[in-house]
């Protein structure tokens, strides 16, 4: 029993330690981002566009494929239920609301946490192990400005954009099923969709994606900076980064959905 308390206590203290580290990383990232954005030379050197290409554009095929299939599967399930109730005309609106508010932002963030957040951790972790970060500090170069700011800004642009694209792709997948199997015309489908969705559905989803972007970058980079102990340490940190950002995203998602619509 005492062992259990000891274990839980230590885990809790470790958790608080990580929280405070992430808080300081977040603060430093904001401060440094301001500096970079206000200085044209630094902005050029940061290579933000290249990062957007890397984390955003190159994630498109995966994000679009997953969301198209998800949109179809989701529509299949919903239409089955609605048909039982004889309420099939509600299908487009129902699907749109669920995808825009919840499924689109969440699934995009989870995909990117796995694809991009993990890469942040292993990249920074490898640099930590090779003492590249120590070298930066020794040259009086701020590692957060050098390594986190461009990733942070690129994600802040990329994730909302990907989320919009994912939601639209999923909606298109849903329409495809509705049209081919249920015979709903494009006209009807569009009208029914636009009748139901409101601006809030869109911006709540975008707001979520901004929060998720920050979570992915901060958790991913923090884990990278915390790496100790060679290649094995990098592997372990990468795994932990995906686990912790996934959990954090789900928790934040629930909180925000409840706050907006609960």
């Amino acid at each position: 029993m005492r062992n259990l308390f000891g274990y839980v206590g230590r885990a809790f203290i470790a958790f608080l330690g990580i929280l405070s580290r992430i808080y300081f990383l977040f603060r430093e990232t904001l401060v440094q981002s301001r500096i970079v954005l206000h200085d044209p030379v630094r902005r050029g050197q940061a290579g933000i566009l290249r990062r957007i290409d890397e984390v955003g554009a190159r994630s498109l095929p995966l994000v679009m494929t997953v969301s198209a299939f998800l949109g179809i599967a989701f529509t299949v399930l919903v239409s089955f239920q609605l048909r039982e109730l004889g309420a099939l005309s509600y299908l487009p609106g129902f699907v749109a609301v669920a995808l825009l508010r919840e499924v689109g932002p969440l699934i995009t963030a989870l995909i990117i946490a796995g694809r991009v957040g993990a890469a942040f951790t292993s990249r920074i972790g490898t640099m930590k192990v090779a003492e590249e970060i120590l070298a930066l500090e020794t040259m009086a170069i701020n590692p957060v400005r050098f390594l986190v700011v461009n990733r942070f800004l690129a994600m802040l642009v990329s994730l909302p954009a990907l989320t919009v694209i994912a939601s639209v792709t999923a909606l298109a997948g849903g329409f495809l099923y509705g049209n081919l199997r249920l015979g709903i015309t494009l006209d009807t489908y569009l009208r029914e969709t636009l009748d139901v969705i409101v601006f809030k559905d869109v911006y709540s989803g975008l707001l979520k994606s901004v929060v998720f972007a920050a979570v992915i970058v901060l958790v991913g980079c923090d884990r990278g900076f915390a790496v100790e102990g060679g290649a094995e340490g990098v592997g372990r940190a990468t795994m932990l980064a995906v686990v912790s950002s996934t959990l954090t995203i789900i928790v934040f998602d629930t909180i925000m959905t409840t706050a907006f619509y609960g």
Binding site: M127, A130, E131, A135, L136
Partner: peptide, 16 residues
């Protein structure tokens, strides 16, 4: 202080 010194690390620590 760090702007006034240079360091050659044992493993070089160049940015890859």
């Amino acid at each position: 202080y760090r702007k006034r010194i240079g360091v050659l690390f044992q493993n070089n620590a160049l940015l890859n």
